[in-house]
Structures are given as C-alpha cells and as structure tokens.
Design a protein around this nucleic acid. Sequence first.
RNA 1: GAGCCAUUAGCUCAGUCGGUAGAGCACCUGACUUUUAAUCAGGGUGUCGCUGGUUCGAGUCCAGCAUGGCUCACCA
Length: 501
Amino acid sequence: MPGIKIEKEDIIPDGQGEDLNELMQVRREKLAELRERGIDPFGQKYVRSNSAREITAGFESFDGREVTVAGRIMAKRVMGKASFAHIQDGSGRIQVYVRLNDLGQEGYDFFLKLDIGDIIGVRGTVFRTRMGEVTVSAAEVTLLSKCLRPLPEKWHGLRDVELRYRQRYVDLIVNPQARDTFVLRSRIIHYMRRFLDRKGFLEVETPMMHPIAGGATARPFITHHNALDMNLYLRIAPELYLKRLLVGGFEKVYEINRNFRNEGISTKHNPEFTMLELYQAYADYGDMMDLTEELISSTAREVLGSTSVVYEGAEINLAPPWKRMTMLEAVKQYTGLDFDGLKEGGAYREAKNLGLEVQPADSWGTILYTVFEEKVEPHLVQPTFIMDFPLEVSPLAKRKKDQPELTYRFELFICGREMANAFSELNDPLDQKARFLKQVEKRKSGDDEAHMMDEDYINALEYGMPPAGGLGIGIDRLVMLLTNSPSIRDVILFPLMKPRD
RNA sequence: GAGCCAUUAGCUCAGUCGGUAGAGCACCUGACUUUUAAUCAGGGUGUCGCUGGUUCGAGUCCAGCAUGGCUCACCA
C-alpha cells in the first residue's frame, strides 16, 4: 500500500500480544524458526510448468518428465523416510511423493515441518504409484506461503453456514461444491453476455448513484456526496437510464450489474443483487418472451449440457416452448374466478371469499394481482409466462390496446418464483407523466415504495422513444435454479452479514 | 419486524435425571522409504455464544441479549 510505512515493531513474528490457541501457537513457532533459518515463509513468484489437472488428465505425455506445480497442502501422510502429500491448485489436486534420499536430511526435515494449509511449489518427476495414482516425485520443495491457521476437517469440510458465508475463502478452500457453484455462476453470466453480444446488443454501464431512485417499486438505500453536499440513492433499477439510451438512438442495449434494495433479507433476497436488463427498439413483449425462452434454455444447455434441471427435488424442463397464459386465464384456472366479468365490488367480495386480505378501496387490478400472487404463483413450477398485468402495478408498461386496464407485461415463473419481468415499454410521455403523478400520490399517502417523479425521464420521452421491448432477469435466482442452490447466499460470494460482537 | 430452532476443542459432532468436559479429524512425541480418510503407540489442547438468575452444585433449568438458520411479513 502506498503511503504506509511498515515499522519493524509492527511485525509480530511470534504472536506476542495475541490470544492464540495451541494449534496457532505451534504454527507461529514454526514461522519464527523458518525466519531464523533464513527461509522466507512468504515467498516470491514461482514459475509453474503445469496445473494439477493437466498432469493427472494427460499422464501419458508427462510420465517420467520433470514438472513444476504449486498449490496448497491439503493432506500429508508421513511414513518415516518417505511421505505423500496432496496439493490443491486452481484446477484440482495432485499427489506429491517426497523421499529422504531425494531431498537430503535438511530438505526432508523442512518438508516434515510443513503444515496442512501451507502453499508450496514442487519440482519433480511425474510417475504413477503402485496404487495407480499420478504423482510428482519431488526433487525440490519451496515454501510459498505459510498457513498460520488450521484448516477445517478434511472429511466434512466447513459445514457451519455462518462461517461459510463470513469466511468464504475457507469455504472455497475446503468445499469443492462451493467452488463449482461460483465457477458455474461465472460461466452462466459469461455465456449470457456472449449470447446478447451475438444478437447485436451493446453492453452499457449506467449510474449506480441516482438523484432519483426509479425503475422499480422498492425502497432505496441513501448515501451522501460530501463535496456536493447532496443525498443520492443507490440504484434500485437501471431501467430509466437504459430507456434514455433508446431515445438517444441505441437500439439494443443491456446491462448486467447490481441493484440495491433496502428491504428484508431472506433465502431469496440479498440487499444487493445482480440483474440483467435489456431493451430492444421496435420490439414488443412477445419478442421478449421468445428471447427469454431462448436465452435461459440455451444457457442451461451450454453450461449444464441439458435443458432439464433438478431443483430441490423437482425436475424442471427448460426446453422451449414454455407455457404462456394471461393473468386472467391463470386466475380462472386455479381459482375458478373469472375476473373479466367482475367490477371492483365483485372482485373485492370474491377475494374475501378466498380468504385474502384486501381492502374495499382496492382497485380491480390490485385485487386481481393479489389473487394471482396468493393463489396462482406457487403452482407455477414448470416455466410459465404470465401475461397482461394490471395497469396499477405496472407504471412503466404500455397499455393494452383493447383492454386499457391491463398492460403488455409478462413475468416468467419457475418453481413458483419470479425469474423474469418484461414489457412493451410505455413510450407515451403524457401517459407516463400521469402514471408518475399517480405514484407520487401513493407516496404522499405513505407508500414509500411508490415511484418518484422523474422529470428528466419525461423530458427524454418527449423527444420520442421508439416502441420497444424490455426485459429483466434476476441473475442470482437463475443461478440458484441452475446450480440447485436453496439459498441466494449460496450463489453470492460475500453475502451481507451483520458484524459479530 | 414476528415465531420456532441452533450456538460445546481449530473443524465435524456427542453430552443421559442438574453431580469433576467427551469422540473423530487436526495438532504434539515416537515407529514406519509406494501411501491415499495411511497405520501403530502415547498426549486433551475448552470463556460449553454473552450477561444475569434458581440451586449445595448449571453445558444441562429460567430470563434477557448477540449471531446464525428455517418459516412468515416486505420484496425481485
């Protein structure tokens, strides 16, 4: 770190002044002993000829050849004057064989002092043991980084979920499954980018700090800019900025980035989460359905090799085409209620009969949405598009031509969970302004999740935004589905945790 | 925000009716030159989450607090 001078007395080589358990104390003593013998316990660059996986997978071409490998000691088996160890690198594990005869007394003693968890470099010859395991017979062992803390148990790994989240680095060392999940997450996002790039979408970055929090129904985080002495909101959605880009003439844009919502934490909610949002000019929500189907099914095929996934015991078939039904049809199918013929009072009575908490003042659309959420959503296990959401809950979506109380909006449900949200974008600035005003009314009456007025966004629409389809996909939830992870915290490397103490 | 559950050695976990704190891995000492959850012999390393209370005596019973998990609420 520049600007920070390290004084000699800042270095505590033997754990003085620290409350160390016996295991850590022993390792500090070994550290001090190494330094006394002139060995740097935290070494320099080490040139590796190969990864563990390259050698184990391609043994035939490595047999008898000298290689250099590096990794963390995960197991150590000492049998007197010869020893075995397993080291783990980014590709996997490989066994190392160490003999007194090869290393000499000093070198072999040095190896015996190494601990599980230490990171070492090994130069040696590849061979196969009597038991058939591809192994590097060491000619030289170099300590690259001393491990001062004992690793969790080799057989069970780290099970305590709290520790797994708080100390993800340990989780990643000892639980291969955790590692696999995050590799898969990376490949999923990488593939989605390639998919969209190939279709001519332009990846863009829009602000994370907003003077007005817009584009979603949610409570924002508030932060402060000192020099400008102004409060800013962390973004709850990039939507309004991305649509400004459509006004500006970009025709296909997307952003994969974080949103921040100041709400409860659960297995399905982290305060910061990753969304894909994309917008396509001259398209509509029908195009977005086709795109969603193609994107998610091809992602599964690409990273899992199959469009069939098992999530929490349920087999989910992601092969297109997916079921498409309107919200009115879905409510009718699962409750027998035909909202199409109901007025506000009738809708209220029927919802009450279903045992739902609704208010007499609630509008027809709000009640329809409530009935859908409560009575239909949990049944939507296989991928299902639910189309035509009520106007009141869709302030940024275009009205349906023939049913102005509904919008050209759909959500995708898988395993009873919302996976995607899309609509034909509202591009009428006057209608948009009226909808914002309605939201502002709701805000005034105490709904702090209602949208704020964004005058500049109206200004942009007044220049003319092409008709467009827009789509949002919750990446964390998609990764949960594709990795069979029960909690969103299993797919976020460092989920938010309360500090201890 | 509410309810239920959990918290014991570095890790994974037992702990009976309230009566001196246990195991496996890891670690330490010794034996062992192709082992692989290496094996064999010996060694227990602890603020039983924290703070109080009940009791002759609390890991165990009670209350409060902290952190986490699950369910619900809010939400995506």
